[in-house]
Design a protein around this nucleic acid. Structure first.
Lengths: 229, 229
DNA sequence: ACCTGAACACCGTTCAAGT
DNA sequence: ACCTGAACACCGTTCAAGT
């Protein structure tokens, strides 16, 4: 019974408890996010994963919100931002759809992103890309600058709305939404004539159609609306 | 030492532990929200407030998210929805500003609202009002129906973005935002030419101006963008 | 049916102490 | 400087048992 000494010289037994770094923490966070969702990405859980105590993480990360923002910037690396040669409007739609699709796989991360915006390199690249595309669409630069905010907010919020619906709790979020759908469908045309008349339209369209229409409406609005002096 | 009998007959000693009802729970939740913010509106805290155990609340409320949605619908009662005679565009802006302003006093509630939409009477009234105003602006009914979603999402998300900044933690959220502002200001014009050129515009404007411009852009976009067939 | 105590399985963050 | 154990002050939700 000599096997498996508890303090071996060999470096291969375990990854040998890698030194704690911000990158290591973020990488572990991304792994836990992919495997089990954002609400397992907690200080305590990460500490456990990295074989230390939660207090140690606070040397590298200010708080949970900052950690989530760093995770999002990391995932943003997935969203392609290579320049393209096609119609800039279509490209704009494509990039924002890609961003939204990525966030929809982690809707609770989208929720975080609304409050704690990332400021990492990938997020900057995304902003740069969007400004370039709006410019290519002929939108005045100052409008484009404010417009980027609007577009990113729309994409983020759209993804955030799906939190609770998809991954973690298939029941919960769905029921809230059903409650609203039911209320709209059964609204009295005496007290709520417009709702009663438009119930069909209010509930029509899939998420993709809504998103796509919303983006086009936003872009149309941005290029036509003058900034305040 | 006879004072303060522990089981008095008089009904005035305390409010006599009012019977548990959904309304009572929501009312207590609103009170706690006003006094101490949403993150004190917890099942445990409410139970304590109502002189019972947390388990008892689950008879009337499915979970915390549903409770928060009910609280929001309650607060929506504050947002005036009386018909007006002025310019419908201005009125539209006024109503949505009022909605946003209300939510900004409780930004974390806005965050909840993005996921768990209310479906109570006050929310329905708001939708009805918005549909009416878009109609008065001459927007085609089906576009108005999809547009209401866009407008409410924008207003809610704008309020939600301020969570963490204002009430609870004056430091935290501000620092995240500063990080982005700093990154934009110092972006290299070699790698990020558009950002470098537009840094001023990207960071200009107060929340009120941004909100107002965003609403106008949205309305312009909504009335000009055809629905998919 | 309604209500409850107690338990299960967690959280974020801080701080004094160690190395 | 970096790292840690332990503590403080909480959470949501469920369940078996009572009335």
């Amino acid at each position: 019974m000599t096997g498996r000494p508890t303090t071996p010289r060999g470096r291969r037994e375990r990854p040998a408890k890698p030194a704690l770094t911000r990158e290591g923490i973020v990488a572990a966070a991304v792994a836990v996010l992919r495997a089990e969702g954002l609400d397992k990405v907690t200080m305590r859980r990460l500490a456990q994963e990295l074989d230390t105590g939660p207090a140690s993480l606070y040397v590298y990360v200010r708080n949970t919100a900052e950690l989530h923002a760093a995770v999002l910037d990391e995932l943003l690396g997935t969203v392609g931002t290579e320049p393209s040669d096609g119609d800039p409007r279509e490209e704009l739609e494509r990039v924002l759809m890609a961003y939204t699709t990525m966030l929809m796989e982690h809707p609770s991360l989208a929720r975080s992103a609304l409050t704690a915006r990332p400021s990492g390199p990938h997020y900057l690249n995304l902003i740069e890309t969007l400004l370039g595309l709006l410019d290519a669409c002929g939108v005045a630069p100052a409008r484009a600058a404010w417009g980027v905010d609007l577009l990113l907010q729309f994409a983020t919020a759209t993804a955030a709305e799906h939190a609770g619906r998809d991954t973690s709790s298939p029941a919960e979020g769905g029921e809230e939404w059903d409650a609203l759908a039911h209320a709209l469908r059964t609204a009295s045309d005496r007290t709520h004539p417009h709702i009663a008349a438009q119930a069909g339209s209010l509930l029509s369209g899939g998420p993709g159609q809504r998103m796509s229409w919303g983006l086009r409406a936003l872009i149309n609005g941005i290029e036509r609306t003058a900034l305040p002096d």
